[in-house]
Simulated scan of single mutants.
Amino acid sequence: MTGNTQQTTGPTAIRSRNTPARVAVWAAALGAGLIVAIVATPMFWLMYGGLYTAFMFLCGLVAIPAGHLGRRRGKRLGGRDRGKALVAILTGWLLILCSLVLVLAYVGLVAGLGVLSDSAS
């Protein structure tokens, strides 16, 4: 080793990471970014709404179990990244809720248009 550099490999470096919590946070952030993308680009959501909604749902499905694993691992690591994992769990549930609301809105829109076209003829 030279000077101020530290070697990050070895058993102590591996034990000190809370990888599930970090995965959960990234999945939650990606899903939240999809919500921002839906609001910022409504034309793209109209064209690719199914993809936005599916990816949002999948991000929620990744964030919840990874967040729970991160909370458990954080407990063994003395509380490291437990707060991040909790935020990821809550965000994951909100992502799933938002994606289900979007699916219900789309189904309601299609059903409403069907009723309108049926009553027009």
Rank of each mutant, 00 (worst) to 15 (best):
V25H: 13
V25R: 00
W26I: 06
W26R: 15
A27P: 05
A27Q: 04
A27T: 02
A27S: 09
L30G: 11
L30D: 10
G31D: 11
A32W: 15
A32M: 14
A32I: 13
G33V: 06
G33F: 03
L34E: 07
I35R: 12
I35M: 10
I35E: 13
V36R: 15
V36G: 08
A37Y: 03
I38A: 02
I38G: 09
V39P: 05
T41M: 10
T41I: 11
M43Q: 15
M43R: 15
M43D: 15
F44W: 09
F44I: 03
L46K: 14
M47L: 15
Y48D: 03
G49P: 01
G49T: 01
G49R: 00
G50T: 04
Y52T: 07
T53L: 07
T53M: 12
A54K: 15
A54I: 02
A54G: 06
F55S: 11
F55N: 07
F55D: 06
M56K: 05
F57M: 12
F57V: 14
L58D: 04
C59R: 00
C59I: 10
L61I: 03
V62W: 10
V62Y: 05
V62A: 06
A63F: 04
I64D: 09
I64Y: 07
P65G: 09
P65I: 05
P65M: 08
P65T: 09
A66M: 08
H68G: 02
R71D: 05
R71M: 01
R73Y: 02
G74Y: 00
R76L: 13
G78W: 04
G79T: 02
R80W: 01
D81L: 04
R82D: 08
R82P: 08
R82F: 12
K84W: 01
K84D: 13
A85Q: 02
A85W: 02
A85G: 11
A85V: 04
L86N: 11
L86R: 15
L86Y: 05
A88F: 11
T91Q: 07
G92L: 06
G92F: 02
W93I: 12
I96Y: 10
I96R: 05
L97D: 08
L97N: 09
L100A: 05
V101S: 13
V103F: 08
V103P: 02
L104D: 14
L104T: 07
L104I: 02
A105G: 00
V107K: 12
G108F: 14
G108M: 06
